[in-house]
Each structure stands twice: as C-alpha cells, then as structure tokens.
C-alpha cells in the first residue's frame, strides 16, 4: 500500500483520483462519520415536533348545559376554533331533507353526530378551503344561504349539518373525535 502510493503520488500529482487507492478502513471511517451525522439529525429534527405540554393539552372538555336550541358557541380545541351547535328540530329536518347525491362531500347528519344526541353538531371552526374561521357560530353572525356557516374569505357556504354546499371549499367542516362524558358534557380529542 505504502509503496504503490508512494511512487504514484509524485509521478502523477495532477491525476487527482488516481493518487491513492482508498482502502477498506478509510471507507469504513468515513461511513461511520456519515452514520454519526445522520443519527445527529434525529434530535435536531424531532425537536420541532409538538412538545409534551402541547400534546398533553390536546383534549378539551365542553359544558353544553347553557347552549339553547338554535344557539352555537365558539370554543378552543388544540388552539383552533371549535363550533358547538345545538340544532333546532327545523334545522335537523332541513339537513335530513337534502339528498346525498346533491352533496359535494356526501355525509348524513347522523354520521356527523352521536347517536341520541343528533341535535349536537360539533365541528372544527376551520374552513376546509384555506383555513379561515367561518361565520355563523356567534350571536347575530350571518349563516349563509344554507343556514349553517358562511366563510367570508372566499364565500364557502355550509348547511345546518356543516356540510359544504357552495363555494370553493372541498370538504365538510371536520368533526373532531369526541365523546359524551355525561348528557351535558363532551370531551373533545
């Protein structure tokens, strides 16, 4: 090894690559450095993922007892708006009357609520178009031509089951995972 390279180097200093033969140990050493550098990336990248305190606050409890039929409240779930709406019988009937074939994202109201609690429509308040907060949950806000929610950014209109009916949004308002812990309390997340 030493002799071959010893003579090769001064003879052909401009040959670049041919100067000395790479042998196993050098490839191994450089590879080990590469493996080490890659392993170092694990903490450097995963530190940007949600920290433990953020993940721990990923459930929210909502008290429903003060929401009258026809009313809705805006609350927070994972630092995003959550719409909790107590549907009237009329609104339920309106939602049920729409044939599924007319819907862009076909879903029945039953699929979007919990059994026995069909009047409680719990959705994210995040327009599925570009993430604005639709109007309609606050007192006196316009609810759009389908009586549900209306997004002022680009005119997406949702019906009383928060399904997309008109405008650019591709999907219904998302229903998060939740469960009824009692008749008047839900745990979201």
């Amino acid at each position: 090894m030493a002799t071959t390279t010893g003579t090769a180097e001064p003879a052909a200093p401009t040959d670049g690559e041919g100067v000395r033969r790479r042998d196993f140990i050098e490839i191994a050493a450089v590879s080990a450095a590469g493996v080490g550098a890659l392993a170092t990336l694990v903490p450097l990248i995963s530190q940007m993922a949600p920290s433990k305190d953020v993940l721990a606050e990923s459930t929210t409890e909502v008290d429903l007892s003060a929401i009258e039929p026809g009313q809705a409240i805006k609350t927070m779930f994972r630092k995003q708006p959550l719409f909790v709406r107590n549907l009237t019988q009329k609104e339920i009937a309106e939602a049920d009357a729409v044939p599924l074939s007319e819907l862009r994202d076909p879903q029945t109201l039953q699929e979007r609520t919990k059994e026995g609690h069909e009047n409680w429509l719990i959705t994210m308040g995040v327009c599925t178009h570009l993430g604005c907060v639709p109007l309609g949950a606050g007192e006196g806000e316009i609810r759009g031509e389908f009586g549900g929610y209306f997004c002022p950014c680009h005119g997406s209109a949702y019906d009383t089951a928060a399904r997309i009916r008109k405008g650019p949004a591709p999907k219904n308002l998302e229903v998060p995972q939740y469960e009824f812990t009692s008749d008047t309390k839900i745990l979201v997340g």
């Binding site: 694990v42 903490p43 995963s46 530190q47 940007m48 993922a49 920290s51 433990k52 305190d53 953020v54």
Partner: peptide
C-alpha cells in the same frame, strides 16, 4: 426556537426545554 427572552418567563422556558421539548 424554544427559549423566551423575557425576564418573567426565561427561566421557565429553559425548564420547558429541559422537560417538554423533544430532546430539549
């Protein structure tokens, strides 16, 4: 990215890094 340079919370933000941030 995780530290807060404010006298009220700087110390706590270091503990946040130590306890809650992934590999902090």
């Amino acid at each position: 990215m995780h530290y807060a340079a404010n006298a009220g919370v700087a110390f706590d933000s270091i503990e946040h890094i130590m306890r809650d941030v992934n590999w902090g």
